[in-house]
């Protein structure tokens, strides 16, 4: 019994003295822990893709069955605001990836600047969405049986707005969650928690943010550019 206890105690000692604080005891080294975390994040992203694929499928079914309604209804969306939001999200993806790289290269101050920029761009996206939503709510261009727009000329326009609000709504919630996580990262970076030795949370948040951007890349032509 004592033969077993000594090596175990010895190993625990080396963990405490040689291993960095962030490294959990069941990983061999930081690289392995980082790779394992990333696989976990990718698995989570897969569930996100499947969540949105149901919505995309619903869109495709309704759109192929009521093409005129979708063409007519999408004219109520402001295409220039859609382009603006696309560019805002693409730039935010760029600032996010620069935040990841800066922290990986141990450039913490630029990393902070890029995190702030990403947060602000997410905020700009939500402000534009707020402008679009309030305009549609004012006109009664709403989802399902809340649709009360008086100038509708083609039957079934409410189907488009059902898809519009559900898809952009769930996407918008993802942006808000991402902004919350980025705010947390900013707070922790200010505390000096991250360095090139440990920046896994920044990297994983980056992956999430890029996926949300990727979903918008598909939403934009589907909702704003129906032809």
């Amino acid at each position: 019994m004592s033969d077993l206890a000594i090596p175990v105690g010895g190993q625990a000692h080396t963990h405490a003295s040689h291993h960095p604080k962030h490294l959990q005891h069941h990983f061999h080294n930081s690289a392995q822990q980082f790779e394992a975390s990333k696989i976990g994040m990718w698995l989570f992203l897969v569930t996100e893709i499947l969540l949105f694929s149901g919505l995309f499928l619903a869109y495709f079914i309704l759109q192929t069955r009521h093409p005129q309604a979708f063409i007519e209804a999408h004219h109520h969306l402001d295409r220039s605001l859609g382009v603006l939001n696309t560019i805002v999200l693409l730039v935010s993806s760029f600032t996010m990836v620069m935040a990841v790289q800066s922290s990986a290269l141990n450039r913490i101050k630029p990393a902070l600047v890029y995190l702030y920029a990403t947060f602000i761009l997410g905020g700009v996206f939500m402000c534009v969405k707020y402008i679009e939503y309030s305009h549609k709510i004012h006109d009664g261009l709403l989802l399902g049986n809340l649709f009360s727009y008086k100038g509708a000329s083609v039957p079934g326009e409410y189907l488009f707005f059902s898809m519009y609000f559900v898809m952009t709504g769930i996407h918008g919630i993802h942006i808000l969650v991402g902004m919350g996580v980025i705010a947390y990262l900013i707070w922790r970076t200010h505390q000096g928690m991250y360095s090139s030795a440990y920046y896994t949370p920044i990297d994983l948040t980056g992956l999430y943010w890029h996926l949300v951007d990727m979903i918008w890349i598909f939403l934009f032509p589907l909702l704003y550019l129906v032809s």
Binding site: R65, N145, P155, Y158
Partner: peptide
Amino acid sequence: SAGYQPAPLPIYVVPPKGSPEPTGG
């Protein structure tokens, strides 16, 4: 092209308040 044809759709599901008759379409 679509084999499955859904039932015709109304202009809107619930008429807006104050307008018993649909004004458009």
